[in-house]
Design a protein around this nucleic acid. Structure first.
Lengths: 268, 268
DNA sequence: CAACGTTGTATTGTCATTAATACAAATAAA
DNA sequence: TTTATTTGTATTAATGACAATACAACGTTG
């Protein structure tokens, strides 16, 4: 685990530690300013001052806050902002290619079997259709970035091997298999890390994750890939630029595809 | 609190309850199938069987699982899926207008003061510029949906009143104030609910939230609004349709603006 | 029927956490 | 300087969640 490893896994101190760390990373507490006193924190988090104390000690050990006796705890400059990955949705997949050069993928599991209920219906597969299920962890800069579960119809998946999956991005393999990728639908929400995912990503269970589900279809509307991606929230961001355009009488927000205002789209 | 209210707020049982509920809602456990045994669950979550037991009882009370002595616990059909709000990014703001009719906004705080560091730099405001800070909770169908914090430069914000904010969408007020909204930048990630946000949204602290930050600029590139929105992950989803298009030699994913394949973009 | 796995129930000891202190040391504000 | 607030440290007792265990009741499977 990255930080606060000495705190017991399921304990209250760790819970407070995680909440405080999350708040700090989100800029809820302004940098340089001082945190509320230990007594105040104990009240807001409904724990004793001793518990808050252990959480703050862990944060101080991580270099996220400075503790000064007599004064209080102050927020340190976020030195961790350096290693953040962000993605523009419109270039999401090509970007992962680009990233493929600086990232590693670890294949956790690989099997063929009947498609789960939700996956089959989302892809528009007949019931009981067999799919290849692969679970991978993508590492960026040596540290875990995402937990990926992909489902591909067996007929397509038989065109590449297990070894291919560990090295080549999936969409490349699909194209190589003659699949004419056409449309995709994405759904983004937030989740908590379950124990198994947490272990694979080397974080605490209950850490916030960005959950992205994507169904990719070919020209005939057949589902060729179902992706369930879980991104570490403190490492990954989904960025998008919008521009207001007139469309008939209504005005809409149209996404800006190409020219990015700030060029830090790929890797900061 | 919606469910599992009898479980102690910071205790392990509630933590397991939240993780299990989150897993169930994400379809990690297939509907109709049976959950792992209490002993197995106790091992994976690193707690005693008694703790798992209390979590399962709470889930059963919520109607999410069925417990049958001798057999095991089975996943119930997700009857809650009915009340889900999703948004297509390209129509995000107009849609909130539409929603404005069926949703209520509760104004939690309203004040003028110097802009926080991160907000000022993101908006491109001179240091120490005064902004109006408003915190609102948006209710959908009587239940909390999002926790919104908005920052607007004082010169613009003086054009509307506190009462306006409680009734009219902010972007409307801006347009009424003569602001020519032009571009926006959004950044999406995941977070945990802090105690104060959790209380306002009527969920447990540590619940997963979708965090959206948006900077809106006018034609001259001046920041006119900074929005920090926290959406309840189990109620809100960000949906997007993409289409593969050739762009020079590279192929990109272009967002589909208008015609939606499945019309359930607004409110399901 | 018999064996096995599962939930229901009860018991008991342990340990983390809380609660209620108290006081020293450092800092900040009056 | 004086006062108030903060962290650092220590102590003690009570509470309650938790772990570990055992066994009964029930269901499933063979």
């Amino acid at each position: 685990m990255s930080g606060g490893a000495n705190l017991p896994e399921g304990g209250k101190a760790r819970r407070v530690y995680l909440l405080l760390r999350d708040a700090l990373q989100n800029g809820a507490y302004v940098a340089g300013a001082s945190l509320p006193g230990e007594q105040r924190l104990a009240e807001t988090y409904s724990v004793s001052r001793a518990t808050v104390r252990r959480a703050l000690d862990a944060l101080a050990a991580d270099g996220m806050v400075d503790k000064r006796t007599g004064s209080g705890s102050t927020v340190r400059a976020p030195a961790n902002a350096a290693s953040t990955v962000s993605a523009d949705f419109s270039t999401l997949i090509p970007q992962l290619t680009l990233m493929g050069q600086s990232t590693t993928a670890r294949l956790l599991s690989f099997a063929y079997g009947p498609a789960p209920e939700g996956v089959a219906s989302a892809m528009g597969l007949p019931g009981g259709e067999r799919v290849q299920t692969a679970v991978r962890v993508r590492l960026f800069d040596g540290k875990p970035l995402s937990y990926l579960t992909t489902y591909v119809p067996e007929s397509i998946a038989r065109n590449y091997t297990e070894a291919d999956l560990a090295t080549t991005p999936l969409y490349r393999l699909l194209e190589r298999s003659g699949v004419k990728v056409d449309t995709a639908h994405q759904s983004v929400t937030a989740t908590l890390a379950s124990p198994d995912v947490a272990e694979a990503l080397d974080v605490s269970a209950g850490s916030p994750l960005l959950s992205l589900r994507r169904v990719v279809r070919d020209k005939d509307g057949r589902g060729v890939e179902y992706l369930w991606a879980l991104y570490l929230a403190d490492v990954f961001r989904l960025e998008m630029n919008l521009s207001r355009v007139a469309q008939g009488s209504e005005r809409h927000w149209a996404p800006v595809i190409g020219g990015r205002a700030n060029g830090e789209t790929t890797i900061q």
